[in-house]
Design a protein around this nucleic acid. Structure first.
Length: 341
DNA sequence: ACAATTTGACCTGT
DNA sequence: ACAGGTCAAATTGT
């Protein structure tokens, strides 16, 4: 609880700071020859930031519980079950360009370990299940599911559950062994795959867990998936990003977020390809989901504000993600399709 | 030898 | 009863 409160405080400050930074960005845009879309996005983000800040200040209901502690038996179902239910869920769609896939995966900043794969009724491709590699060591219960889209095999649907309580997300620098290993492996085995690499965007996503969808495409033959990618970015923003998170303290991209989480490219031109596909309704309909999930997604999709509502009120955010800067390696270029583009 | 992935079995929710 | 999700032994890779 305390953590949540502290986190909120931090978030509040972050939102306000972000709003400020975004306003500065907008000012620059107004003076430059930037495209209208980017300006609109900035405005939208500014509004979102303040909306978020206000929401945080508002009295709220109960918050999702944080991951519980591990207890002895692996099959302590009662707890796990409850835990699962309590865990916030959100979905992303990610599409990665083939080149990227070949080059290597993109990480969402977290290390994942695959723990299962299942054939899903009605789906051409099996669904892969991943959990945080630090589950045991750091009691981090975040998990994600990756499934290749039937319609477009280059798109992967990534569903996140729970938030990372480990502090291992968004490693800007060559992440610990695990991430890289994973990448290598996958690449080797299938020449592709962007799998759940460590730097994927979970951190970012967390922000928007509200149901942001990102398209990741993969070439992999396997459905390894890119687990999460940082998705997002504003359509027109390209190089301006650098100005973001100058100190590495805040990742504004996260913040923009809930709506169209922008994600700043770390300065790589390629990253400019990045765009967020905000809610992908089609996707939503294609998947199974509980009513509540759907509702969440829809609400998130329809309005940035709603989105915020969801993310802030119903979800517990990962304290880490907000302040981590995500840096995508130049190699990992992935192009995200933006639905509204 | 250790670590990560694969895969069939098991468990839970609907 | 079925489908989805997770476990854990076996397998594969480093």
């Amino acid at each position: 609880m305390e953590n949540i409160c502290n986190w909120e405080q931090g978030t509040l400050v972050s939102e306000l700071i972000q709003g400020l930074e975004l306003a500065k960005q907008l000012r620059l845009h107004l003076g430059a020859s930037s495209c209208v879309e980017s300006r609109d996005l900035l405005v939208q983000k500014i509004l979102s930031s303040y909306e978020k800040a206000l929401l945080i200040l508002k009295p709220r209901g109960p918050v999702a519980e944080s991951p519980l502690t591990i207890n002895g038996s692996p099959r302590d179902i009662g707890d796990v079950s409850k835990k699962r239910k309590m865990m916030p869920r959100w979905r992303d769609q990610v599409k990665v360009s083939s080149e990227n896939l070949l080059e290597g995966p993109h990480d969402d900043g977290y290390s994942w370990r695959k723990y299962g794969q299942k054939d899903i009724l009605g789906a051409k491709y099996p669904r892969s299940y991943y959990r945080c590699a630090y589950r045991n060591t750091q009691n981090c219960w975040a998990t994600k599911q990756v499934q290749r889209s039937d319609e477009d095999p280059t798109i992967f649907h990534v569903t996140y559950r729970g938030t990372h309580t480990c502090g291992n997300g968004n490693q800007t620098v060559p992440p610990p062994a695990s991430p890289e290993k994973q990448e290598r492996k996958s690449n080797k085995n299938h020449l592709t795959n962007n799998n759940h690499g460590p730097l994927q965007s979970q951190g970012i996503l967390l922000d928007f867990r509200a149901g942001l969808s990102v398209n990741t495409g993969g070439l992999d033959n396997k459905e390894m998936a890119p687990s999460s990618f940082p998705s997002t970015s504003f359509g027109c923003l390209k190089n301006e990003n650098h100005s973001f998170s100058p100190s590495g303290v805040l990742d504004y991209s996260n913040i923009f977020g809930s709506f169209s989480s922008p994600f700043m490219s770390p300065g790589t031109p390629e990253l400019s390809h990045f765009s967020v596909s905000q809610m992908n309704f089609g996707d939503i309909h294609n998947t199974k989901h509980s009513d509540s999930d759907l509702a969440e997604l829809i609400s998130a999709t329809n309005s940035p504000i709603m989105d915020l509502d969801f993310s802030l009120d119903q979800v517990e955010l990962d304290p880490n993600f907000l302040f981590d800067t995500t840096e995508f390696s130049p190699n990992s270029l992935f192009a995200i399709k933006e639905e509204y583009w």
